[in-house]
């Protein structure tokens, strides 16, 4: 809404000291965590303030962010969901820095302004992120997988096989006790996946899901995934190296049974799926 008050609000001049004030607050929090000693910035004279920063040679607040491998403007941060814009002809490359993997998107060797449309879905048994990007024509698959596998948090990473030639997907399996955060950037387009340890009350839980029999990586896998697409189907590599399609995720066996019966009713008979169970971090044997 545009009104006089809003105009006056938008015209509030931004202080040139703002970065340093934020940095001061952050440094104070870090010091306090280390020493459990508090201090106040309120009332510190400006001259002292400047001397403090000049003497300590502390970088501005964006120095923290500069350690990340991407520099664009943040569009959104998410754990699950979707983002990006409809594009076509993008090329994906990747880079890794510590526990952050950045996916870059370009077209005709120029960085795109916006990330192509993508979806992020999280599953358990095992703990994994399924990331699918659409509107992509080429991808440096080996480089992307190598970047993902370079992160300590990543237990395994492999591509999904997708019937749509313009879509690329990955399954990123995490080690126990890790989670992730996705950040979408614009100008230039990038998608960062940051992995970090986090205690989860789901770690010990048993998870129930529907699955197919094991099959090799190929057309049958792609078709089975499409068949159960509406059931939140994913592709999962077993310990033995074959693949299965999973559908749904349930807290109890009874819920999984009910879902299977409902599917069988809808499909008019046997679906080829059966109920399976596993610990939150467990990869099925076969």
């Amino acid at each position: 809404m545009k009104n006089l008050g809003k105009t006056n609000y938008d015209e509030i001049p931004i202080s040139e000291e703002l970065d340093r004030a934020i940095l001061y607050g952050m440094k104070r929090a870090e010091r306090e965590k280390r020493r459990a000693v508090g201090e106040k910035w309120v009332g510190v004279a400006a001259a002292v303030f400047c001397v403090f920063f000049a003497g300590a040679n502390i970088a501005p607040v964006y120095a923290y962010a500069a350690e990340l491998p991407v520099v664009g403007a943040i569009v959104r941060v998410l754990h699950i969901g979707e983002g990006g814009t409809r594009t076509d002809g993008a090329h994906i490359s990747a880079d890794t820095q510590g526990e952050t993997v950045a996916l870059y998107f370009e077209s005709n060797a120029d960085a795109l302004d916006a990330v192509p449309f993508y979806t992020a879905v999280h599953h358990l048994a095992p703990n994994r992120l399924v990331l699918t990007v659409q509107g992509v024509c080429t991808m440096d698959t080996q480089a992307v997988l190598a970047s993902l596998l370079a992160a300590d948090a990543v237990r395994d990473a492999y591509p999904s096989i997708i019937g749509d030639d313009s879509a690329y997907g990955f399954v990123i399996v995490l080690h126990r006790g890790y989670t992730y955060e996705l950040t979408e950037y614009a100008k230039p387009a990038a998608l960062s996946i940051r992995f970090y340890p986090e205690e989860s009350d789901q770690a010990e839980a048993t998870v129930y899901y529907l699955r197919t029999k094991a099959m090799p990586y190929g057309e049958e896998l792609s078709l089975a995934t499409e068949e159960f697409n509406q059931e939140n189907a994913t592709q999962l590599k077993t310990e033995s190296g074959d693949y299965i399609v999973t559908a749904g995720q349930y807290a109890t066996e009874a819920e999984a049974d009910a879902a299977l019966r409902e599917l069988e009713t809808r499909y008019g008979g046997d679906t080829g799926l059966f109920v399976a169970a596993g610990a939150a971090d467990e990869v099925p044997e076969k």
Binding site: Y9, D10, I12, I14, S15, L18, D19, I22, M26, V61, Y62, Y64, A65, E67, L68, A73, I74, V77, E181, T183, R194
Partner: peptide
């Protein structure tokens, strides 16, 4: 680092 990044993105709003 991520906190700093998010603060950087929203700092003008927080200041106003």
């Amino acid at each position: 680092h991520r906190f700093a990044e998010r603060m950087q993105a929203g700092k003008q709003k927080y200041y106003r």
